[in-house]
């Protein structure tokens, strides 16, 4: 029981901790960039002349959904370990 628990909790931590750090930086650098580099974030891009911040905002929309799919895929694998734990109890 304990070994499986450790395997589960380790594998989960290894996946979640880096992910959370990246996400935190990724999401809050959008409003923070408005604060620190307003000039840079408003420079027009090649995409329909939209300022860079629009591209960044769209990236956040896409990223949210991508991360969710990654997470659910990982969670399915972790569920298998949980099932093992439940059977061994």
């Amino acid at each position: 029981m304990n070994d499986i628990y450790l395997e589960w909790s380790k594998s989960r931590k290894k996946f979640m901790v880096p992910l959370l750090i990246i996400l935190f930086l990724f999401y809050f650098s959008l409003p923070l960039s408005l604060f620190f580099f307003p000039e840079y974030i408003n420079t027009p891009t090649v995409i329909w002349n939209l300022p860079l911040i629009w591209v960044y905002a769209f990236l956040q929309l896409i990223m949210t959904l991508v991360i969710m799919h990654l997470y659910t895929r990982k969670a399915k694998k972790l569920d298998e370990i949980v099932e093992k734990m439940r059977k061994e109890k």
Binding site: L30, P31, L34, F35
Partner: peptide, 8 residues
Amino acid sequence: PLEVISLY
């Protein structure tokens, strides 16, 4: 911009 951070 502080308002944006806070809202976010």
